[in-house]
Nucleic acid binder design. Sequence first.
DNA 1: TCTGGGGTCCTAGGACCC
DNA 2: TCTGGGGTCCTAGGACCC
Length: 418
Amino acid sequence: MKMVALVDCNSFYCSCEKIFRPDLRNKPVVVLSNNDGAAIAFTKEAKALGFGQMCEAFFKLRDRIKKHNVAVFSSNYTLYDDISKRVMNVLREFSSKVEVYSIDEAFVEIEGDENFDFEAWGAQVRAEIFRRVGMPVGVGISKTKVLAKVANKLSKKNNGVCTLLTDQKIDETLKDFPVRDIWGIGVRSASKLSIFNVRTALELKRFPDEKIIQKHLTKIGREIQDELRGINCLSIESPEDKKNTGNSRSFGYDVFTKEELREALAQFVTNASLKLRAQKSVCYGLTAFIHTNPFKPGPQYYGIDSIRFSSGTSDVVKLIKGAHEVLDHIYRPGFGYKKGGILLNHIVPKNECQMDLFAPSSDDNEPLNNVVDMINRKYGPQTVKSGACGINQSWKTVHAYKSRHFTTDWNDLLKVEL
DNA sequence: TCTGGGGTCCTAGGACCC
DNA sequence: TCTGGGGTCCTAGGACCC
């Protein structure tokens, strides 16, 4: 008997911060987005105080945060990525089939016979992850991914583990489960379904006219319906190589000059191309964009354009030149730019790369890129990079409440005094 | 003063082919 | 009056996820 477990970390970013701050146990904690612009993660204690609306502007919350003595952190992705890897590694000891779905959750395949105690399995996974990493997780177990997601939501109220194994228990649960809360059903789909009087997961499961579902919710909706019925449509897979990748940031202040934008785009290309080389791929296109602050009154401008490369490339110098070329097209003087970014598109594995008849096979400077990546792996990110990224990076994102890199930097190791 | 970032998949429709 | 039919490939945009 094969079952699917969804293991998901509770308030992941906040829990990461709490691992190294035992004084914050049972205290309200909030984590901010890049640039300290908005609140994006909350502990249950913070939610109980009325915080918890995703992406609410930090400046609007500041007074209430002070009043309730809420601990605030800037996001520290270096830390979160590392904690995530540790959690996933523990999971891999429990099953050979683990699909890392996002930074804080994974699907796990479990095999067991009639007598297998899935509930106990879930409890053991929870305990082990907490013991080894200090991360609280919820475990939902059922027949399909969509049902495992449902079970996971219920696990929060159920000692962290919820199993939906029999048809009877599944239907009882789906009867009270709003259709909007199903994984893959967003606001749009939910409102379309309400036209047909489908409001609960059970009503969707039993909705007889599959053509209507296909028409309004596309293939995805049909598959969700089948998954609710216990039919596996979505298999557990190891994630494939990325098909697009990008990097973008809000700036610390409004940026007016082309020079600063050139620096920022060069840095974004540096970050994104590292991901590209890490998966041994090349790209054939690059998109760059810059835009003004939509929250500010006054004239707005959104500039975006792309270029194509005649041969696939992952060469940081070539890509930076490309981004600068696009910037020349889209830059309009006089505007204060709040955000910029780049995307690398049409990504293919390097060894499947199509040669261009008229271009030299590849003018990537591979030895240079390899050496730079190697140095940065050994001595830390950004030890060596293109001068185009600038030295001061005055446009850079601000993060006033950032914790240390406890697990990834010798200088930031936690000191314990006895 | 201050408002996130990074992805995936699907479909319709246009361009182009014979 | 009526203006082919069948196919592929690509892209933009929508919807959704965490």
